[in-house]
């Protein structure tokens, strides 16, 4: 029986791919690789086999700082009482093509 316990876990990388066009990089998934170069190669094999991908980023998973679900309301709901951040808050004499 293989004893994988003795093997080190290879580092985890998050993969972001940019599809052709004006798209931003989007999270695609994660892969394992011993270093950045190999991570890029593995990401290519797993996530860019046929789509028209323009660019790939790989980021060590531990390097990402993420918001926590319990903080999210405080972080993201704050704008609800700031309706002056939306164009509908502003009135002009009559509806025009500029509205």
């Amino acid at each position: 029986m293989p004893d994988t316990d003795r093997e080190k876990e290879t580092p985890l990388w998050e993969v972001f791919v940019q599809e052709a066009g004006a798209e931003a990089h989007q999270h695609a998934g994660s892969i394992h690789a011993t270093d950045a170069e190999l991570a890029l190669q593995n990401a290519r094999d797993v996530f860019a086999r046929r789509e028209t991908i323009k660019s790939i980023w790989v980021v060590p998973s531990h390097a990402i700082t993420s918001s926590q679900p319990e903080d999210e309301p405080a972080l993201f709901d704050a704008a609800s009482d700031k309706i002056y951040r939306h164009p509908q808050f502003y009135k002009t004499e009559k509806a025009s093509d500029n509205d």
């Binding site: 994988t4 316990d5 876990e9 998934g29 797993v46």
Partner: peptide, 25 residues
């Protein structure tokens, strides 16, 4: 590739890929 997509998704549940794969073997 499909196997990798799903292993990557399983890992988000806090289990390592090595652990998951060991259970197959």
């Amino acid at each position: 590739g499909h196997g990798h997509y799903i292993y990557s998704a399983v890992e988000t549940l806090g289990v390592s890929r090595e652990e998951v794969y060991r259970k197959l073997l």
